[in-house]
Design a protein around this nucleic acid. Structure first.
Lengths: 346, 346
DNA sequence: CTGAAAGCGCTAACAC
DNA sequence: GTGTTAGCGCTTTCAG
């Protein structure tokens, strides 16, 4: 803090510093640093060396203001601790890495008011595009997205009205598909276990599609249970135990995600319940994380990485064609059932 | 795309638009929107209404350039799919939510050259501070961090020389501690299972501390195995099987993370191996995710959330006192052993 | 191939 | 309380 204090509050270097150090005009320095326009080999080298010597880092704020171009893509998702969104991010990164675009993520914790705030904050940096999870947003959020004048891709879900482009799966259809597979396998006394989150619209839609398809065959869920908080694995265990004790005639358990499903599976194995003979089980998501359990849980791949890739591609393409908006692309992917070892085969 | 095409390439609204719409000077509009300085109640309302009507979103780029202030904190981490970094993020968010600061995350995938690129990219937005995982960085990265003139907090690890501030645990000490606990429990034929990643310095340091403490008691690891890629749970199973077949005298398996440890645990239970009697097991990280397994794996809490909180606090404090740099705070947290059910008690 | 001038949209620092 | 004047550090545009 005294004699050897690190240079504090040092003025950051500017183009002008590089210009003076290299004896080349600011403009030419700028051209060299951006690889724009023709610059002679000699000046180029001189500039590069000066910049490196000084440790110059360009100021993107100024650059963005001057060029009216910001190579940022806002990515707005509900959660990171979910295992599903990191995979979406991977897909997004994969595509954006090939472009000048950079993702910036914001997390909403499934709260509309947080989404609104995060969105406002991100839009105020004037990104080149927005990738946002879900089709349900507050009116204010929708208004902002429409007014932003940049490409908007809503991801994960296709059941509803998109603002602009949209990439995802139909969760309603996914629920129906699983219901039909379960019925076809001969199960009839079905219990449902899910999260309490009323704002997880995709889980809700899966549930709706599920019950709807059962209803079509004149079947109703015999029991249901919802949880919140805590370790999903442990919760899956507890809920399964509670439900099986309460409703012993159950022969199938449908879980709204793989983690609680895995908990249930472990419980059943512990109890010596025969799976999938006595009881069948299924989850949702296809999380690779769980490969390695004693049995492979039946599940459905949510196409996470592909959703990320497709969304990023849309932004990248439109951004290349000068930020055209309103393309309205709609990509519905088709999740496949992975029967694993917990869904009886007929 | 034709008649009802959404307004494309609309010029974004500026302060001037709000100024004109409300009949108040740009400066006053700016004051209202930032809650700065005294503005009469009437004009304030008039401005707010105009801004809302128009759907004005301030341009932070221009604001940041003019004020030389950017309320962004760069957070640079190796991975998101790890379960450990999301928890660090949670801690960071918790603290920054109370401040005007906003985290922006960059992911390096454990690659120094990517770290360099991500860092450069982020620094070029002139953030108020940097939180970066690890103490090992390329020379260029170190130079950038030193030259940036902003608070830098290196997190997760304290074994080494920090650039500025530092918050974490000593992984070497953590490794030693676990080794001593294992020896004290009476195990002598110890195998190690870890990741192949040579760039995961923290795993490496744990391993070093571990073998060092064993050596002090004249003991050497009897076998070791490293993996890469794939589902950690499945890999843990496979590696464990391979090692136990190869080296049947083993009585303890130390895993470099909880996921492979859990795989090993499941394998042992499958095989009817008595845990922790016949074989003891331990992992590292204390991932809550795994609560709910048939047995609780012995592990060590890495203090992830607290690390995030402490790091964010340092940035927030220094940022409040005008971005002072070189504070050099050093916070070493002490991870505790959670013996769970897989470490014999004496 | 290189340079000079004029902003980008906002805010700091003053006047009034 | 409110308005005016200069920039912030870069890039665009146009002239050489």
């Amino acid at each position: 803090m005294t004699d050897t204090a690190p240079s504090r509050n040092r003025r950051p270097l500017t183009l002008r510093d590089v210009s003076e150090a290299s004896g080349v005009s600011e403009m030419t320095v700028s051209r060299v640093l951006r690889n724009r326009g023709d610059v002679s080999q000699t000046t180029r080298e001189r500039v590069l060396e000066a910049a490196k010597d000084l440790g110059y880092v360009p100021n993107k704020i100024a650059g963005a203001l001057a060029s009216q171009r910001v190579n940022l893509v806002a990515v707005i998702i509900p959660s990171l601790s979910n295992m599903v969104f990191p995979e979406v991010m991977t897909g997004i990164n994969e595509v954006l890495d090939e472009t000048p675009l950079q993702p910036v993520v914001g997390v909403t914790n499934y709260k509309p008011e947080r989404e609104e705030k995060v969105l406002y904050e991100m839009l105020s940096w004037r990104p080149s595009g927005v990738i946002i999870a879900g089709l349900e947003h507050s009116d204010a959020s929708k208004a902002m997205l429409k007014a932003a004048g940049i490409p908007v891709v809503e991801i994960m879900d296709t059941d509803g009205q998109a603002i602009d482009a949209c990439v995802g799966i139909s969760h309603r259809r996914a629920g129906r598909k699983m219901a039909n597979a379960i019925l076809k396998a001969g199960y009839r006394n079905i219990g449902f276990l899910g999260t309490k989150m009323p704002l997880d619209h995709r889980a809700r839609k899966r549930f709706e599609g599920f019950t709807e398809a059962l209803a079509k065959e004149g079947i109703e869920i015999v029991d249901r249970e919802f949880y919140e908080g805590g370790s999903a694995l442990a919760k899956g265990r507890e809920m399964t135990e509670a439900m099986l004790k309460r409703t012993p005639e159950i022969d199938f358990l449908y879980y709204s995600n793989d983690m609680i499903g895995a908990g249930g599976l472990l419980y059943c194995l512990d109890q010596g319940i025969s799976v999938p003979g006595q009881i069948g089980l299924a989850g949702f998501n296809g999380v690779e994380l769980l490969d390695g359990l004693p049995r492979q849980l039946a599940t459905m791949d949510a196409c996470r990485a592909e959703i990320g890739r497709a969304a990023a591609r849309i932004i990248a393409e439109r951004s290349a064609e000068d930020g055209a908006i309103g393309g309205g692309e709609r990509i519905e992917l088709t999740p496949k059932i992975q029967p694993g070892d917990t869904l009886r085969r007929r």
